[in-house]
Design a protein around this nucleic acid. Structure first.
Lengths: 153, 153
DNA sequence: ACAAAAGAGTTGCAATACGAAACCAGATAT
DNA sequence: ATATCTGGTTTCGTATTGCAACTCTTTTGT
């Protein structure tokens, strides 16, 4: 039976996962962020099967994360480029990456630097309006009326 | 053939996705962050099939994101609680959620407030050491020797 | 005390998704 | 003209998913 979809779950996280929550999508996006644009290069860099790659690229184009642009004059070369929506996943990709670095150590040797200062970027964190980091214990989940969310279970 | 695993990909993102990159894991974690602890409650709140739920909970316990603790004195009731590692996924969950809010609008009416000030939390972002937000264009990817990463394609 | 329900899983089955490799058509290179 | 590259599509066998039914132990209701 088909994978369960989350559109109807009325949950922002679920909707996000519907668009980029499968095994390959975020890797494709990260690869695109590193500069990969061509079908064959995605394939070579990630070792993904072609049929799956076609499917994922189409999905991501449909949801507006990637744009398929004609590259080359004869209509058989294309580039898949990140849109603004796709580039905006930067935070998510980096947050996941940093989480893995913290808990599982560094697998790739890659580091990220602030281009203008040359210094490492800082750790992504949830912050209050003053820029102080917040853990889950510091936040309150409320509904649209400002009522604290009581957990059904 | 089995789903392709990313352990060998030498990529932190890939490793992270190996642990929490499937359709259900992050939803389970978010639900746990909202306070759900019991098997039946995960099932009811998410509508996940029991066999899949068993599988996912086991995986997450194995990778140290959840801990299975005996609740009830007779050894047949359990609670699945976030570990420190699991709680540390807060940033990732919120980043994904905010991304979806920005691009697809608000589906649930939920809002997050700083418990101590009552104000909304700010948007998660990649920042430099001064706390200024960085987009992907502001950062440089370098290898362990500090050499800029040239993209193979 | 006894029956009924809940909690935490298992098991079996059908539908689907995935991965590998073969195949294909238009453009390019030799 | 022949071979190769690109961006796919097709086929086929395996893996994963979802659903429903079933278990076994503990709790709850009367």
């Amino acid at each position: 039976m088909s994978r369960k979809r989350f559109d109807d779950l009325d949950c922002s996280l679920a909707c996000a996962l519907n668009e980029v929550g499968d095994w390959w999508s975020l890797l494709l996006i990260k690869q695109a962020m590193l500069g990969t644009r061509r079908f064959v290069d995605f394939q070579r860099n990630l070792g993904i099967a072609k049929n799956i790659l076609v499917d994922r690229l189409c999905r991501l184009v449909e949801s507006g994360v990637l744009a398929r642009v004609d590259a080359g004059e004869h209509g058989t070369r294309y580039e898949y480029r990140l849109t603004e929506k796709g580039r905006d996943l930067f935070t998510v990709v980096i947050a996941l990456r940093q989480w893995n670095l913290r808990w599982n150590g560094n697998r790739d040797g890659m580091r990220l630097l602030d281009k203008s200062s040359g210094e490492p970027i800082s750790e992504v964190a949830v912050q209050n309006s003053e820029g102080e980091p917040l853990t889950i214990k510091d936040v309150l989940f409320v509904d649209e009326n400002g009522q604290p969310l009581e957990q059904a279970g």
